[in-house]
């Protein structure tokens, strides 16, 4: 009985789109993020307390449980830094230091970002080029495609140090060796996505093009390429995240002096946990922003092409 009475009422008070978004995604996401923060704070105390208690005992001055509790959140080299320590370090190393300084995360981030973007650009072009060749050549399709797919089961990131060292031996230093690894990691999703995309037009549409006696280049520019655009952007989102991972890992083993990967390595050598965590968060933030930018480009291009999503 009650539901019957309420049903028309609900229909009349349909919540606004924004408030529906708040109730259906913002609140749950914030709750989950909040829960993660709480777990993090508890874990900080649990993990740090033994080390901190030893330190206080050795100092000899008496302390209360409350002081011990607070001290675990402000240690200099904690086992797990607390969220506010990471936030402080992030703020200090981005806003608080000049960009040109070796301590600035913006400086290191830019070095990683530049090789990521160069590698991603080359990788995307290479992936599109390979996809075009594969779609137009039966032999390449049958011979190359299985290898492209199985190349992904190979932990290619493992050869990142080798490429960088060999390139250094050749006298090629700096951006390009790192960009090469990003290229390798990002070409695959783009190539596979574009092959699917370029093949996605209907049989009917292809037949229609044939009735117009369209050349294969006309079919490509007017039918296949526009049909492949949504696939391209989806795979570019995967590709740019992969390129960032590639650029960071490429900075690890070579004793590189700059870049987010080098910050991670230096932090692990000197036990600077706060530095490791802040570099990690900077990398995570960068990945999220890069993926979001590609997603935005996707929406803009779709709108201009008149594709309804």
């Amino acid at each position: 009985m009650r539901t019957e009475a309420i049903a028309p009422l609900r229909a009349a008070h349909r919540p606004h789109a924004v408030s529906r978004w708040v109730a259906e995604s913002a609140v749950p996401v914030l709750a989950v993020v909040g829960a993660i923060l709480v777990v993090w704070m508890v874990a900080t105390y649990v993990l740090n307390v033994t080390v901190q208690r030893d330190a206080l005992d050795r100092a000899g001055t008496p302390y209360t449980a409350g002081e011990l509790f607070l001290a675990t959140y402000t240690m200099e080299r904690p086992i797990l830094p607390s969220p506010h320590q990471v936030a402080q370090e992030l703020w200090k190393t981005t806003v608080g230091t000049p960009i040109t300084s070796k301590r600035s995360l913006v400086y290191h981030g830019w070095i990683t970002l530049s090789s990521t973007l160069v590698g991603f650009g080359i990788g995307t072009l290479l992936g599109i080029g390979l996809a075009v060749l594969i779609v137009h050549s039966r032999t390449l399709d049958k011979s190359l495609m299985p290898w492209i797919v199985s190349s992904q089961t190979i932990p290619i990131l493992a050869i990142a140090p080798m490429i960088v060292v060999v390139a250094n031996a050749l006298g090629v230093t700096g951006l390009l060796p790192k960009a090469f690894i990003s290229t390798y990691l990002s070409f695959f999703p783009v190539a596979v996505g574009m092959v699917t995309g370029l093949r996605s037009p209907d049989r009917l549409h292809l037949d229609l093009m044939r009735t117009y006696t369209a050349t294969s280049s006309q079919v490509f520019w007017k039918l296949r390429l526009p049909a492949a655009v949504p696939f391209l952007f989806t795979s570019m989102k995967v590709g740019i995240a992969a390129s960032l991972v590639g650029a960071i890992v490429a900075e690890l083993p070579t004793g590189a002096v700059a870049g987010l990967g080098a910050r991670l390595l230096a932090g692990s050598y000197y036990g600077q946990t706060v530095q490791i965590w802040s570099a990690l968060f900077a990398a995570a933030l960068m990945a999220a922003v890069l993926v979001a930018i590609v997603g935005m480009l996707d929406r803009i291009v779709r709108q201009r092409m008149g594709i309804r999503s």
Binding site: E24, S25, V27, P28, V29, L30, A31, V32, V33, I36, I79, L157, K237, V238, A241, L244, V245, I248, V249, L260, G261, L264, L265, G267, S268, G271, T273, I276, W277, A279, L280, A283, A284, A287, A288, V291
Partner: peptide
């Protein structure tokens, strides 16, 4: 929980998680 965890999980899947290796080694 599902509505909250899905976006977070999707985001984390795109992050360079290998970076936590030095922390795990510690």
């Amino acid at each position: 929980l599902k509505r909250g965890l899905l976006p977070v999980g999707n985001l984390v899947s795109a992050l360079p998680i290998v970076g936590i290796a030095p922390i795990m080694v510690m």
